[in-house]
Each structure stands twice: as structure tokens, then as C-alpha cells.
Design a protein around this nucleic acid. Sequence first.
DNA 1: CAGCATCCTTTATGATACTG
DNA 2: CAGTATCATAAAGGATGCTG
Lengths: 124, 124
Amino acid sequence: MNRKTSSANEINKLKFHCEMDVAMHYVGGKWKTVVLWYLIEDKKRFNEIKKLIPNITEKMLSIQLKSLEEDGIIKKEVFNVKPPLKVEYSLTDFGKTLIPLLQYLVTWGGFVVKEKSHSIHTKQ
Amino acid sequence: MNRKTSSANEINKLKFHCEMDVAMHYVGGKWKTVVLWYLIEDKKRFNEIKKLIPNITEKMLSIQLKSLEEDGIIKKEVFNVKPPLKVEYSLTDFGKTLIPLLQYLVTWGGFVVKEKSHSIHTKQ
DNA sequence: CAGCATCCTTTATGATACTG
DNA sequence: CAGTATCATAAAGGATGCTG
């Protein structure tokens, strides 16, 4: 695999130094991977996601959903115009290409929790 | 896989909401994955990494390397005490468990660059 | 229900100069 | 060579109240 990534990539006016930058643009930050994780299973409504992630604020959830939608990772469907609104979020086909990555992240995270809780790992 | 992650995990005094939080703690941020990517191949010196990532500042590289070392992902070896110093950074065994993830990230990033540059993907 | 607006604090990142 | 110190901005995150 090529590590000599001296040329910059450009996607929608954004410049990236390397493929890693590109990937992290889509899944980086504190919340995106968590939100996406809960959308793998099935489409969900705003408050469903909110309840699944107790410590996220409505503002942050709103920002993440908007960002993911703009990036084409998820799609938003509005089912009625008058309150109470019904809105559903789901992965796009493009977003589904992230599933293996999300699964690996969760698996690795779980692995680390086990390792660390058993104090197998120490600082080197 | 279990998505009901209501219980918090704790690693070295840090609390995490779910496995995803844990994983992102180790590889999140703008630089960590990039730095780690260049360390897969072989151990490297500070200025070697710096040259491979032209737009990183010494300060940021220093912060990332310190953080990765504290997390046990990389190890630092100092070979002489008097300037000019020789310091080498390399992945620990624990850090090497991240390699598949890093490879997937780069592969996915490359895939996206291709897709987007061909305008196959549009906002939904 | 599904958000947005506002104000605020905390992290992250950056530019530049300097040191053992 | 391998960093640190300082000053600064930008981005992320959060609390609270309000709205169509």
C-alpha cells in the first residue's frame, strides 16, 4: 500500500492530505461513529437516537445528523408536515460501506475494555 | 452484536459511554491515524514523521506522539543523551492490533476519493 | 416531535520562536 | 535532532430556553 501521499485530494472544495484525512472527515469527532452504529440496525427517529445515546445533547445530535446527511452517509425522511413531526434517519448505500469499519471499531473498543480491565496492558 | 451499551466503561480514570467511545479515544482527532499509518511500515524518527506529514506542526506531532505513547499504542526509544538526539518511535504489540483498522480506514478513504472524483455520489 | 437560537466553556489546532 | 514555550485562533461540545 502506498504511503507516499504527497498529492492532495479534493472532495467538495475540501482539501485532504491523504486517504486517512478523507476517512476521518466522515467518521471523526466524538459522536458520528456512535450515531452511525445505532443506524446500522434500522432507521431511527431523532428521539430514538437521543435515548440510545443518553449523554448527547439535542444540539450535538442535530449537528451530527446534518453533517452526516450533507456527506451523503445518511438520509432523512420527513413523513408529515404538521407537528408532531415524524422524521426518520437511515444509512444510504454509501453510508453502508462504513459498516465493516464501524464493526471493527466496536470490536476493537470492546477488546481494549477487556484488556485494560484485566490490567494486561501497562505503559511501555 | 450488542448495541445496548447503557453501562459505562472505565479505563485509566476515563469514562466511556460505549465501545465506540473507547476506540475513538485512541484513534480520534486529526493526526493520530495518519501518524500511526506511517509507523506500520517501520519505526521512525521525529523528523522522519514530520517530513512524511508536511502540514503537521512540530507541536502537534509532539502532542500526538506523547498521547499515543501514554496510551500504550507506540513506544519511544532514546538512543543518546547528548544532542543531536536519536529517538525512534514504533508500534507496541497493543498498537499493532490497530493495523487492520488503519488499513480499512485508508482503503475506505481511497474508495471515497475515487467515488467522489467521478461524481458517482450525490447528496440525497 | 424534532428540532433551532443563544450563550458559554473546553479542546484542538496552529504559527512562531527558542532550547538541551 | 528532537523537541518545548508562548500566544493565538478555530472547532467542538454543552446548558438552557424556545418554536413550527
